[in-house]
């Protein structure tokens, strides 16, 4: 860990301003990902801005009929919220499928969205990694890639986004609220938050320097049957090989996002027209253009079968 300076932000706008004004600054909230990365010198912020005191930790009814979730709402609190459990079951289930109770007690909503990949080569500073050290190369391509991405990846990076929560939020059409260093605010669909890696996999989001996520808003409840199905080698405390977040209506239509396979929560709205035709058809449309490695090609079939199982469960 490199030595760093530390401040407690007094308001979201002040935090954004401070971050933009200090080279190498990072926000810290729950710290469940950042601190680990700092110990390994994968993240080496020179300045850490603690946003925990910003009172962004409430869940409120949104004027349009949805829910506005403060950026600092802990994963445990969000999963347990009565409104979330009632109206956004897929989100509650996704949260509880992730990490451990201890981690969920610390981890925040915004931090979860911004967590970094668990690619093992990203975690080993002796190995080339374009995400960690731009231009150094990708060790995962041609290496141990069983866990890694099959779609939306590039020749520079095949890392996946590890979140479960974000996959459910993507299926739910959440929007992200932010504040910029100039104190202006904006909202964007969650679909626009994460970038494709292209040749710059170190650039992971569309947030401007210093821009701080302040809330995530869920639209009006979508109803339907809401399922989060996470497939993994052990029964708990493991990242998804494939996960499916699904909101399926009685008529077979619905919204579906996949986790564990791409650099971002993977959703193709156009593919959802195929949902009534079943998992095979929907998966084919969702995964069109996939480029798996030899080691993770099984994820294609796994995604198809998992989606099929989720659709059957929704029908039952």
């Amino acid at each position: 860990m490199r030595a760093f300076t530390y401040e407690r932000a007094t308001s979201p706008a002040a935090a954004a301003k401070a971050a933009a004004g200090t080279r190498g600054a990072k926000f810290i909230a729950g710290g469940t990902n950042l601190l680990d990365l700092m110990k390994l010198q994968i993240e080496t912020p020179s300045h850490v801005i603690d946003v925990n005191g910003l009172k962004l930790d409430t869940i409120e009814a949104a004027p349009e009929g949805g829910l506005r979730i403060g950026a600092l709402v802990r994963n445990t609190a969000l999963a347990a919220d009565e409104r979330v459990r009632r109206d956004y079951g897929v989100l509650s289930r996704a949260l509880l499928a992730g990490a451990s109770g201890q981690l969920r007690n610390r981890a925040t909503t915004a931090g979860n969205l911004l967590q970094r990949t668990r690619c093992p080569y990203f975690y080993d500073t002796a190995q080339p990694c374009n995400k960690r050290e731009p231009g150094s190369g990708c060790s995962a391509l041609g290496g141990f890639s069983r866990q890694l991405g099959i779609i939306g990846t590039s020749d520079a990076c095949i890392a996946t986004h590890p979140s479960d929560m974000a996959v459910a939020m993507r299926a739910l059409d959440a929007t992200i609220e932010t504040v910029k260093p100039d104190a202006s605010t904006r909202t964007m669909p969650i679909a626009e938050l994460h970038r494709a890696p292209g040749s710059t996999p170190h650039l992971e989001t569309t947030l401007a320097p210093g821009e701080l996520i302040t809330a995530v808003t869920l639209p009006r409840p979508a109803g339907g049957t809401q399922i989060y199905r996470k497939v993994r080698d052990r029964a708990s405390y493991a990242f998804a090989l494939v996960s499916v977040a699904a909101i399926i209506q009685r008529d077979g239509s619905g919204q579906v996002a996949l986790g564990g396979i791409a650099p971002k929560p993977w959703r193709v709205e156009a593919a959802e027209a195929e949902l009534p035709r079943g998992g095979k058809a929907a998966a084919a449309a969702l995964l069109n253009g996939a480029r798996p490695t030899r080691e993770n090609a099984f994820k294609l079939m796994l995604a198809e079968r998992t989606l099929g199982a989720v659709l059957s469960e929704a029908r039952a």
Binding site: Y123, F144, Q147, D233, R234
Partner: peptide, 25 residues
């Protein structure tokens, strides 16, 4: 232990990536 046979090491060198059973297993 996942062998990277190009670079000659066990890639999953922590308890997050070398999975052992948890209670739920």
């Amino acid at each position: 232990l996942a062998v990277d046979s190009r670079r000659g090491f066990f890639v999953n060198h922590d308890l997050a990536s070398y999975e052992v059973p948890v209670h739920a297993d």
